[in-house]
């Protein structure tokens, strides 16, 4: 293969592989391209599909502003400025972003608090039925969220918890994937380290938080990215449990603000909102890219 031959040599199989990969990457990136492009263009350019990537950035008339009785000259706006300011003005986007942070961070912390002791017990303690419990954990990995969404919703509704932060957070606090991932990592921690801690006088919980947690930071980082990405981007669950209260909207729900208005879809600001929602994740990914890949290989290895 290529790494055995340091000099360049044309290889049909490698070319085909790369062609397929490039094609795949293009398919994945195309929606992002459209999203960013639309967030910069005027409504007319979006409808007529003109203006290239950036649009011509010719000021256009904001009809809504005119309706409010302002002079037409005062209502001329540059498309990209209009899109991004509208995104923040029309919906309380900052509030949504804050909600997103509250929800994802709470979910992650509670997940860690529950997953670490579980994973520790499954990896390092010997008890009757441990393998069965682990098999159940693996089994739970197979259950899709959507299959249990309705019973979960009914439970929350009966408890009167819909339209609360609790409804957004509680169903996700036990992460089977997290337990599985951390268990696999803990299996690689040498038993001697735990025995040493026991000899030093630590109890089992103390071992989890003072010995296992610090050694598991790389795996936890990987899990953090999985967890945060999943819940930051989640549209399905918030859509179900947050029905009226806009104060509790998470960023993806905020996108709906621009959808289905009487005067038609307002794609420019909508795409600007999407860009704003995605950016924190992209930034986080760029910063933690190495760890993210580590995490994937970690879970893929075993």
């Amino acid at each position: 293969m290529s790494d055995q031959q340091p000099t360049f040599r044309f290889s049909t199989s490698a070319t085909i592989k790369h062609a397929v990969l490039i094609l795949g990457a293009l398919i994945v990136l195309l929606p992002f391209y459209v999203m960013v492009s639309y967030s910069l263009k005027s409504p007319a350019e979006i409808m007529q599909n003109t203006g290239g990537f950036f649009g011509a950035q010719i000021p256009f008339r904001d009809d809504y502003c005119v309706k409010l009785g302002n002079a037409i000259a005062d209502c001329m706006v540059t498309p990209w400025i209009y899109n991004y300011t509208t995104a923040f003005e029309k919906a309380p986007l900052v509030r949504y972003l804050l909600n997103g942070v509250i929800v994802t961070v709470s979910i992650f912390f509670i997940q860690v608090i529950i997953a670490l002791p579980c994973a520790y017990a499954l990896a390092k303690l010997k008890f009757w039925g441990r393998e069965t419990v682990f098999a159940l954990v693996l089994f739970c990995l197979l259950i899709p969220v959507h299959a249990i969404a309705l019973p979960l919703y009914i439970m929350l509704a009966k408890l009167g918890l819909t339209n609360t932060y609790a409804a957004l957070i509680v169903p996700w606090t036990i992460s089977v994937f997290g337990i599985f991932l951390m268990r696999q990592f803990f299996m690689t921690v040498p038993d001697d380290l735990i025995d040493a801690a026991r000899m030093d006088g630590m109890g089992e919980y103390s071992i989890i938080w003072n010995v296992m947690l610090p050694t598991a930071i790389p795996a936890l980082m990987a899990f953090a990215i999985f967890s945060v990405v999943a819940h930051w981007n989640d549209y399905f669950w918030p859509r179900i449990v947050i029905t009226g209260n806009r104060e509790l909207f998470t960023p993806p729900l905020g996108l709906r603000e621009f959808k289905g208005d009487a005067d038609g879809d307002n794609f420019g600001p909508m795409m600007a909102t999407a860009v704003i929602i995605v950016t924190p994740l992209l930034a986080a990914f760029a910063l933690a890219q190495r760890r993210f890949i580590e995490g994937i290989t970690l879970s893929g290895m075993k």
Partner: peptide
């Protein structure tokens, strides 16, 4: 009795030092 209460100390083959401290 628990290991810690026996007041014995142990040196392990892999040293088992806490890597983060």
């Amino acid at each position: 009795m628990r290991p810690a209460d026996r007041n014995l100390s142990m040196v392990f083959q892999s040293y088992a030092l806490y890597p983060h401290l």
